[in-house]
Structure formats: C-alpha cells, structure tokens
Write a protein that binds this DNA or RNA. Structure first.
Lengths: 195, 195
DNA sequence: GCCATAATAGCACAAATGTGCTATAAAAGG
DNA sequence: CCTTTTATAGCACATTTGTGCTATTATGGC
C-alpha cells in the first residue's frame, strides 16, 4: 500500500487540528485522535513531532505548486495568465483557505523553529520567483512598460498577494473573496499601465 | 508607583520570550524568569495567562497608534505624509521589527483564541481605516485621480503594507529595509499617477 | 509606630506533552 | 506454513504547564 498517501492523510489530520484548536494544541495525542489511530501508529509514520510539522508544511507548498503547474497557460493572454495563476495562490475557496490558515500558523512558528527555516525560505523563494516571472512576462509581451524595475515590481506584487492572503484569513468578513479578487485585478491593471 | 508601567515592562518580557523562543514557550514561568521575578509576582499583575497575552497584543497596537499620532503632518505634502505614516508601521528598525514579530505570532494564535479576536479585529480596522484616510487625502489633494474606488485602493494599500511587514519579518535577508521602503514608495507613486 | 494594602515568593496539584519502549496484530514473501 | 517486516496499540516516565493557594515582605497613610 501507499505509505506516502497515508502520510498525507495524517498531515491533513494535523491541518484540521491546527485550524480547529491551534498549533499549540497540535500534540501527538491530539493529532492521532483526530486521525482515528493510536500514538504508536502515528509515530510509525513520523518518528518525531518535528518531522510531522515539517511534512505538513511541505505539503502546503507542494499542493500550491501542484495547482500552479497543472494550469495550461500557453494560449492565454499574459494579463489573464497572471491573474489566473495568482488566484490559485489566494485563499478564495475552502481548500485554499485551509492551506492559507495552516501556512500562517506554521510561518509564525518558523520564526523560531530551526526545523522549519528551510521550508519557510523555500516557500518565499518559490512565490517570489513566480511573481518575478509574471512581471517579466507582462513586460516582454508589451502589457507593462519596458522601463520597469522588475525586481521591485515582483516584490510589490508578492507583497500584495501575501497581504491579501493574510487579510482573507484573518478577517474574512471584511476581506471577502470578491474584494480580494478585485484588489488583485486592480493591482494587475495598474501594473499593466505603469510607466 | 506606576502599575501600568510595570505591566508594560512585563508585557515586554513576554515579547522577548516570544521572539527568542516562540509563543509556545511563553509560559507563565518562562515569562516570570525573563522578567526576573517570581510566578506569584507576575500573577499579581496578570491574574491569568490570557490576560497577559491580550495586554501584550494591545500594547503592540497602542505603540503603533502612539507613534502615528505623535507625527505632525500638518505642514507636509500629502504624498510625503502618507509615506511617513506608513513607514511608521513597517518593521524598518529594531523596535518596530520586534513589534511586527510579536504581532505575527499573536495574529496566528488569534485565529483560534477567542480572547484575541476583538484585538485582531481592532488592529485590522485601525490600519485599514488609516489606509483609507490616506487614499482620501491623496485624492482630495489632487495627487491621485478623483475617479478612484477609494475602498479598493485602501485595501490594496493595506495589503501592500501588511505583505511587506510579513516579508520583512519572515525573510529579512531578502526583504531588506531598503527594499521594503522602496517598494512602499513605488506603490505610492503608482497610486498618485493612477487613473 | 500601626496597620491595611500592595507586592513578591513559591508550593501543590492535576493535566498535558514528547518520546522511549514493549507487545500484539496484520501482511507479505518464500 | 512459517518467518520476517510492517502496522498498530498503548504504557511509562520525566517535563512542563496553568492556576489555586498560603506565606512572607514592603509600602504608604495617618
């Protein structure tokens, strides 16, 4: 049988505990109970708690990466492609909202937990690189002005995306799906017309 | 003697523990040890741990609010005023970086801790309202186009600020002070010239 | 100086935690 | 059918935690 699928299922049990009770309640016992198995069984798949946390954080990254890579953007207009890709990162539905909440909790812990440092950096570099490629694409296609400082615009775009993600997670009543999507579209509009 | 100042000092001890060891290690004992006092003394000022956490989160908000209100912007050009105010929120020096790290940790917990919900909302509304007023100011002064959707621009501006804050805290080697400041300036430039 | 009140110290206790460890059940390979 | 992994279960133990509680020391008002 597929042990990797099993591990992903257990990591998702951890996600549920984190979202319902918080990371501070995500003990080995609580996660095992959530998954409906014993402590011993859980520890058969993750020898230590750090291992489980790291796997769960990596899973967040991989899920997002998978969704992005699954998109076929070859026939899209650059502006539309950019919006489509970035909407895949923002928490605009239940699945992505779950990932974003877990990401926020784990990012907070990654500030002080050496085990998560590498994953935190990887996650930042992945999305920052994606934004950079999108900016380049818009410039090359002529949608955005050629004189742009692409690095600056990439960090700005990434800040918009992460800021929106945080707001959508922290204050969903105000930062609604529609508002978040509209703000992203607005920024991309400005980027296209910018000198 | 001033009991409020004492409480602030103890909350700052909590900040130090959060920054050094993480929120999950911020136990009553550890905070008391950091402050150099006994558990009993700490509990004389904060009857429960929730009380201490809430006070520490409120202190983050009040410190930022105090810095902003202390600014005298009456004689500033609107664009300069906006940049000055927002730079006061971003973690561009040691003191503000400390506040931002604590804010990130407590915001993560606020997702599941009812005690912090009101403070989380208050913090969002405060900064969102600030961004809204800045946008209005730019529009009224003629720096930004009058046809703007002020609500949309306010949320966008707030997303930029919070996204930059997160990046500066999570990845300071890449999101350096200079880069963060430049990105903020770039966005304000775009806002001023936007149709 | 007296005394109420504030301040500090720290013990006690039940609850929870991570992990080392052993024991049983299931599956797989030959 | 037997044996060797693999999977599951859960106990044991030392630590840590939050808070109730009592005891001791300072401090101020009068």
């Amino acid at each position: 049988m597929d042990i990797e699928a099993r591990r992903e299922g257990l990591a998702e049990a951890l996600w549920r505990v984190i979202r319902r009770d918080g990371l501070e309640r995500a003990s080995v016992r609580n996660v095992a109970r959530e998954a409906g198995i014993s402590m011993g069984a859980l520890r058969h798949y993750f020898g230590t708690q750090d291992e489980l946390l790291a796997f769960a954080m990596r899973l967040v990254i991989e899920r997002a990466r998978g969704r992005i890579e699954a998109l076929d953007l070859s026939s899209c207009a650059p502006r539309w492609a950019a919006e489509t890709v970035l909407r895949e990162v923002l928490p605009l539905d239940a699945e992505r909202r779950a990932e974003a909440e877990v990401w926020l909790a784990l990012t907070g812990r990654a500030l002080v937990d050496p085990v998560l440092w590498a994953l935190r950096d990887e996650s930042y570099d992945l999305l920052r690189g994606l934004c950079r490629r999108l900016v380049d694409m818009l410039v090359e296609s002529g949608e955005a002005a050629p004189g742009l400082d692409a690095d600056l615009e990439a960090e700005l775009l990434y800040a918009v995306v992460d800021g929106l993600a945080v707001h959508a997670v922290v204050r969903p009543e105000r930062a609604t799906d529609d508002l978040v999507a509209a703000v992203l579209a607005r920024h991309l509009d400005g980027l296209s017309r910018r000198a």
